[in-house]
Design a protein around this nucleic acid. Sequence first.
DNA 1: CTGTTAGCGCGTTCAT
DNA 2: ATGAACGCGCTAACAG
Lengths: 364, 364
Amino acid sequence: LQRINIHEVAKRAKVSIATVSRAINGKPKVSNTVIRRVWRVIEEIGYYPNTHARTLVQGHSRTFGLMVSSTIARFYPEVLQGFADLGAEYNYDILLSPIPKDANRFGLVVRRLMERRVGGVAILSFAREKSLATIFERSNVPVIEIVTESSKASASTIKIDYEHGIRQAVQHLAALGHLRIAFIAGPANSKIASARKHAFRKCMREIALPSKLILEGDHTLESGITAMSTLARLTPRPSAVICSHDLTAVGVMRAARDLNIDIPKHLSVVGLDDIDAAQFTTPALTTVRTSQFEIANAAFHALLNATPTDGSSSSHDPFTIKTNLVLRDSTAIASCRIAATIGVTVRGSSTIASMTNKDFSNVV
Amino acid sequence: LQRINIHEVAKRAKVSIATVSRAINGKPKVSNTVIRRVWRVIEEIGYYPNTHARTLVQGHSRTFGLMVSSTIARFYPEVLQGFADLGAEYNYDILLSPIPKDANRFGLVVRRLMERRVGGVAILSFAREKSLATIFERSNVPVIEIVTESSKASASTIKIDYEHGIRQAVQHLAALGHLRIAFIAGPANSKIASARKHAFRKCMREIALPSKLILEGDHTLESGITAMSTLARLTPRPSAVICSHDLTAVGVMRAARDLNIDIPKHLSVVGLDDIDAAQFTTPALTTVRTSQFEIANAAFHALLNATPTDGSSSSHDPFTIKTNLVLRDSTAIASCRIAATIGVTVRGSSTIASMTNKDFSNVV
DNA sequence: CTGTTAGCGCGTTCAT
DNA sequence: ATGAACGCGCTAACAG
């Protein structure tokens, strides 16, 4: 493989290397005869142009770095897949890099990307790794990050609009007759978690519902279990709960089962993010979805825009990703006796319909 | 960034580029004074050696390709993460590439990897993409794939030993008193699915249990629902079912709920693979786990071994990955009346203990 | 239309 | 211990 280069092709096709180069890159002013001859040789000897040589002379590499935290990698895998697919589509190479747990090791992974002369880097993490971005920006390498509020917005950022989906969730629950809706928050030091909490508060106020019922949590399943036991002791007990993360919602559902609290009969549960697991719980979890593909798509195109050669260099507004409520089976009308007898039809009626198949005889 | 190269460093450090090169690469015969001076300049001007130039002169690139099918990307995300982590650890760059749905587009993604002069490629897919591997092998690029039987084993392969985990599952169920154990198979044309089915048959025969109860399926949730409705009509009904894939098990559990068949009281369910969702079902799914990290680890080291420079070039035996039963809450003793009254303690007793919290009064 | 040549940035002889 | 010069494979600018 080593000795098979453009010279070899040129020799066999009986032309100069310049002509081979032109033929390969579809430059004009090459006779069709020669083009065919060159390509035939290429196929014959299995020649692949050396990207590194090409990059060296052209000065850019059509490569994007994709740095993902372990959380993203595990719970939002379609982001990686989507990004890889887009790379294939736009003929960009994707360099996959982890975001180390240990910030001391940031330098190492950044260095590898810099040495590769990546044209841009998507830093995908819910904990904003500020020190990562600055290293790239110091060398004028475009960086995009996930952001919730219009924080610095220095480089291109992708912004997730939680308000839209959370408003749908709150209104959905309100339409089902829930007046006391609790919220299990995420880690206090997380920007994204507080954005979610604020959105909840705002949307509750909009429809004049009390938004005081906010429990602490940390986006883990365990915190859902803990919160549920707190919730169960409240009087009057809230009839619905929105969790800052699907995993917490899973914890709530698990704890509820042990407490003989039926979901959705006695407690409606809504999650956030629509991770894969949300579809597979019993009952399936109603949740505010953030499209993983859209995150990948926004990140990729933001990078493309920041690239002088390919970028449409359109407005540098941050990409905004909408969230949407996905109705499944973990929410139901506030008092199921009413629902069962009068057969109310409201938005989310399919949810209610599925209740009839369930068993309500063992509630505390 | 463009104009900042080794010459610039050399000029500022008042040495030749050769000396800079030596200092960077830790070659001997450079005075400490000079080393320090060089590094200071490097830090100062933010110099990063150009990997492409280095690759060009050295002839190899410390890059591995990671080709993943959409199934792997979605349900086995830790494989990607593990591979990326190992890349960072061993200073290898990881080029992430999708395996296109359309085999016609294989050429494009392969080409990109070849042009990058990857030192090896891990093709991670459960449907063996034979045509992919051959393209690489034609150019002597090491390829590793996932394999179940010692099929061709031409290149290094990683082999998953399903028998071990499935034997544990069968014995676990037998120990719980299950005599009629069904199996929901995967797609007939899938090597990996038939390997699982054969392992089931073999392990059942080993303990002299009938292994005739095999239903068709295709590793989807829907096929689990379908299979469950078939299962429910059987007389006598099997008391346990092993599913060729976790998703199918989720489908079984969902259908069982609608049929008022309690899991695990009236039906024990075991899955395969331990995808993320398995932890989040209710009850949590007992399953035969294939460590995703071990797949990544085996693939990475197989590639390392196949690399002349770095490889320990040890035995070319295929890496074998063991599977293991993970006990959760979807399996229980065959007749729960007995369990409840005499409190039998067997392997998996924790499973049985958790039953006491559950509700058994509504079974058909 | 096609060939010749000069680098792209770096590692590596071979001198000194 | 350090420097000069060559070449890795390729594209681009210029010559013909």
